[in-house]
Design a protein around this nucleic acid. Structure first.
Length: 320
RNA sequence: GGCUCUGUAGCUCAGUUGGUAGAGCAGUGGACUGAAAAUCCACGUGUCGUUGGUUCGAUUCCGACCGGAGCCA
């Protein structure tokens, strides 16, 4: 759905690592600014994945409309492209209602693709090509596929490491389907300027350990809230390769359910994987100079964070 | 109290026939365009327990001391 207007669309983005308090901040802002929330989270998309994804409950949502949460069954596939379509459509609906769209979430790729107004070119699924390339990978290895890629897309080939199977295969797949190198697609996708009057807020922790402590505590709380049961029933019905089965909090419990590792070990693994995930998110968001970082640690209250965020938004004048 | 073993990176441990040391894990930094909670890359200086001695040179050999473990009393 195209948004036809020359007037910039106000858009608020709330980003940060997992367990940093994005949900609470986005909710507070939605209440104050008459907004609606668009979740940019690759796992909260799925129904039933509630505890592991720290999805806000109906009560916590407090009447604020949330978009892109619980829209798919866990076995279904989803991608950035699907996110982009759905998020744009949500924005235009929210605008039509005269409300402020607030995109909040930890999936950096989703956030950036939306906020930068990336236009992905049509790309039909090509399971057969992918399968063939996977076979070739198994037979001849990454160097060989990289050489193939080099022939028609040296730019991408030189930026990929031979071990990076997924990206190499994807790059070849794109060229085979469209006749255009993926590096060229990337350039074309960025030609339309962003229609948004954007304010990006990021939650920051001066002390990394404080974030990690929050993560550790949240995992314990998830266990207390029944993560084991949720994980068991999800894993039972999901194909191991599905996106949903890769959620942190499920895959680490496989060993426990199989009896090959103790519950304690599995819980430690969840904590560790969550910390690593947070670190990757920090790397992703750190490079974005547009983000206004708000200190969320050092014992700052939700109200203080909210007040600072509110002030930043007012000075940005996006709500004119 | 005696004997034996042991003390090296945040952790578990290698190693140096004497020339100041390296793996795994943890951790840190980075990349990222249809699976992104995924995937991939890079990064190892540490009073070699302390202190004396021998030596051109000691983390390495010897002594004492301080931790830890075990056995005997």
């Amino acid at each position: 759905m195209e948004i036809k207007t020359n007037v910039p669309i106000p858009l608020l983005a709330v980003v940060g690592p997992t367990a940093s308090g994005k949900t609470a901040l986005a909710l507070g802002l939605a209440q104050r600014l008459d907004g609606e929330i668009i979740s940019a989270d690759s796992m909260q998309i799925y129904k039933g994945m509630d505890i592991a994804t720290a999805k806000p409950t109906q009560a916590e949502m407090n009447g604020i409309p949330h978009h892109l949460i619980d829209i798919l069954d866990p076995g279904e596939n989803f991608s950035v492209a699907d996110f982009l379509t759905a998020a744009k459509s949500a924005i235009s609906d929210i605008r039509a209602r005269g409300k402020l769209p607030i995109v909040a979430g930890g999936t950096g790729l989703y956030i950036n693709t939306l906020v930068d107004n990336v236009e992905l070119s049509p790309m039909p699924a090509a399971a057969d090509i992918r399968e063939e390339l996977n076979r070739l990978w198994a037979q001849k290895g990454g160097e060989h596929l990289l050489q193939i890629l080099e022939e028609f897309d040296p730019t991408t080939a030189s930026s990929l490491h031979p071990n990076n199977k997924g990206r190499i295969i994807r790059a070849i797949e794109v060229y085979r389907q469209t006749g255009i190198p993926i590096s060229e697609h990337v350039i074309r996708s960025r030609q339309t300027p962003s229609p948004y009057h954007l304010v990006m807020l990021g939650l920051h922790f001066a002390d990394r350990q404080e974030l990690y402590d929050r993560i550790n505590r949240r995992v314990d709380a998830m266990i207390a809230a029944g993560l084991l049961g949720e994980a068991k029933s999800m894993l039972a019905k999901l194909p191991p390769a599905s996106t949903a089965a890769q959620a942190i909090g499920y895959k680490e419990l496989r060993g426990h359910f199989a009896g090959t590792s103790s519950l304690e070990e599995s819980v430690e693994a969840i904590k560790q994987e969550t910390r690593r995930y947070a670190k990757r998110q920090l790397t992703w968001f750190r490079r974005d100079q547009r983000i206004h970082w708000i200190e969320a640690g050092n014992g700052r209250s939700t109200d203080a964070i909210l007040a600072e965020a509110h002030e930043l938004i007012e000075t940005s004048a996006i709500l004119q």
